[in-house]
Every structure is written in structure tokens, then in C-alpha cells.
């Protein structure tokens, strides 16, 4: 799950919760569904091989992306796919954040969410 200490509310969009490289790769995977690292590298030409590799390992470790090994006689490669859609990710992150806020501030958070919702609608 996204670590709370990594949340940066000043950033735009998903960059609040992920690094810009992670967001780029997640967007590619949501668009392409299954991609090899070579395809990802092709789309992120400005990033080094080591940077793409490190980011992919991190996303797999944190459970947002999964990979399986495609093994042939002459070639081995990973095939990457996202573990959830963008909407599901939004649900997972917001649940986590709200849980943490309720743990800290109790029912005040629930009534505040209700108020904010009322103002917005």
C-alpha cells in the first residue's frame, strides 16, 4: 500500500502518492494492460534502463503491478500487468487514508467528510 510518509499533497494527480516515473509506468500499463520491459523502455526513452528496472521492481514489490516470466529456448522476459484499474487504485488509496485519519481523529473525520461532500454537491 502507499506509504503515508510518501504522500505529498502539494503534487498533482497520482503524483501525490507515487513518483513521476511510477505514474508514467502505471499509466502505460493501464493503457496497454500487458507490456514487456522492452516496450516500457521504448515509451520511456528519456529514462535509463536502471531507472526503469528499479521502478518496475518497486511497483511489483508494493503490489500495484504483477509480472510473470515468459521463458523460451532462446529468450527470457518478464510480462508486466497492473493489479488493479485506476478507479480501483483510487478506492484502495482513499480507504487507506480515511482509515488512518479515523484512527487518529475519530468521528470528527466522518462528520467533516460529510460536510465537505455537502459543500461540493
Amino acid at each position: 500500500m502507499v506509504k503515508l510518509e510518501r504522500i505529498s499533497l502539494r503534487n498533482e494527480g497520482l503524483k501525490k502518492f507515487f513518483s513521476s516515473n511510477e505514474v508514467r509506468i502505471l499509466d502505460l500499463l493501464w493503457k496497454g494492460q500487458t507490456l514487456t520491459s522492452a516496450q516500457i523502455q521504448l515509451e520511456c526513452e528519456d529514462l535509463s534502463l536502471a531507472c526503469v528496472a528499479g521502478t518496475l521492481d518497486r511497483l511489483v514489490k508494493s503490489g500495484f503491478v504483477e509480472r510473470k516470466v515468459d521463458e523460451g529456448e532462446t529468450r527470457v522476459r518478464y510480462i508486466y500487468s497492473p493489479t488493479c484499474t485506476k478507479d480501483e487504485l483510487g478506492m484502495r488509496i482513499s480507504e487507506h487514508v480515511v482509515d488512518c485519519l479515523i484512527d487518529t481523529f475519530g468521528t470528527a473525520v466522518v462528520s467533516n467528510i460529510g460536510k465537505t461532500r455537502g459543500k461540493r454537491s
Partner: peptide
């Protein structure tokens, strides 16, 4: 590593 095997030929 798998990364190495992906990157190099046999």
C-alpha cells in the same frame, strides 16, 4: 537476474 537474461542474447 531476469533483467540480465532479457537484455543479453544467449
Amino acid at each position: 537476474s531476469v533483467g540480465l537474461l532479457e537484455h543479453l542474447n544467449r
